[in-house]
Write a protein that binds this DNA or RNA. Structure first.
Lengths: 162, 162
DNA sequence: TAAGATTGAGTCATCAATCTTT
DNA sequence: AAAGATTGATGACTCAATCTTA
C-alpha cells in the first residue's frame, strides 16, 4: 500500500541514482503526517471556538495543575514558538477572557499567565474530543504497534530536547 | 530517558484521571518532531539561499524528471498547501529565476511550471546536504528500527492520502 | 550586562471571491 | 456549471530592536 512518500522516494532514486534518499522515508512522513494531524485538530477544536494555537497555550496551562499559572517563558518552551508569538497569543487569549496576566511577585521582570474558569471549561471540553479524534487516527495500529511507534519517535526527538 | 511529551502525558494523567491521553504519546511527538525537523531544514537550506517552501516546490519539480514540468495543481497536491499559496510561491520563484511559467498547450486553463537550469543546480546541491543532515538526525536508530519506524508511520499516514 | 517580555516590520499562509477556459 | 489558477484581505509567525528589572 503506497503513500505519497513512497512515490517521492522512488522518484529521487530514479533521478539521483548515486544518492540515498531513505531518510525521507521517515522524516518526510513525519512532516506530512504533522500537517494532516494539524488539520484534523483544527476541525475538532473549531467546534469549541478554538484555533490550534489557542489550544496549545490553554492546554499547557490546564495540565500544569492549580493554580493554572505559567510564565510566557515556560509557555514558549512547551509550544516551540518565539517569544514575540507568545506575547501576541496571550494578548488575544486575554481579550477573549480565557487567560489573565499578573505581574510576578518574586521577579519584577516576569509575568504570570493564569487560566480563567471560562478558559478551563473550554479546554477541558476540547481536549476530550481531541483525544477521541486522535484515537481514531491511530485506530489502524494495534496497541503494541502504537507503543513501539511512540518509543521510536522518542528516540529521534530526544536529542532535540535535552 | 524522558522527553517533553512524556512530561505532557504524565501531567494529563494527573489532571484528568478519567481520560486516556495516550494518543499524545504518538501524535504530539509527531508534531513536535516536525517542528524540530523544519528548523534543521531551514538551517541547511539557508546555506543554499533557500527557504523551506522554496525547496518543497523546486524538489517536486526536480524529482518529476525531465522536462521538470508540473502544473500548480500537481505541485499543491504534493506539498499540502492551498492553491493561493502555490500561486504566490511560483510568483516569487519565477522572480528569482528558478522556475518559469508556460501556458499549457492541451488545456488553456492550465499552466506548466518548469524548473530552470539555475533552479536545478540549486536544488541538487541542497538536497544532498539536506539528506546528510537528516541522516544525522536519524543516527540514533539502527537500520531495522528506521525501517520499522517508516512502516508504522506509513500505516498512520495512509488513510489521509487515499 | 543579562534575562524576561513586548513591540514593530516584514513574510508567508489560508480563505473566499473572481476570471478564464472546458 | 465545473475546473484551474489568480487575487486580495486577513491572520499568525519570526526576527531584531527595545524596555524594564535583576
Amino acid at each position: 500500500v503506497d503513500d505519497e512518500v513512497d512515490r517521492l522516494v522512488a522518484a529521487w532514486r530514479r533521478e539521483l541514482p548515486g544518492i540515498d534518499p531513505s531518510p525521507f522515508e521517515v522524516l518526510s512522513r513525519v512532516t506530512r503526517l504533522a500537517r494532516h494531524v494539524e488539520r484534523a485538530r483544527q476541525e475538532v477544536l473549531g467546534r469549541h471556538g478554538l484555533e490550534g494555537w489557542m489550544f496549545d497555550v490553554l492546554a499547557a496551562l490546564r495540565r500544569s495543575g492549580p493554580p493554572y499559572e505559567l510564565t510566557p517563558g515556560q509557555l514558549l518552551a512547551q509550544t516551540l514558538v518565539s517569544s514575540g508569538a507568545m506575547t501576541h497569543r496571550v494578548d488575544r487569549l486575554e481579550a477573549l477572557g480565557w487567560v489573565r496576566r499578573k505581574r510576578s511577585a518574586v521577579d519584577g521582570r516576569s509575568v504570570l499567565v493564569r487560566l480563567t474558569a471560562a478558559g478551563r471549561r473550554t479546554v477541558d471540553a476540547a481536549v476530550i474530543e481531541l483525544l477521541e479524534r486522535e484515537e481514531t487516527i491511530l485506530s489502524g495500529l494495534a496497541r503494541t504497534e502504537r507503543d513501539r511507534l511512540a518509543a521510536l519517535l522518542r528516540a529521534v526527538v530526544a536529542p532535540f530536547e535535552r
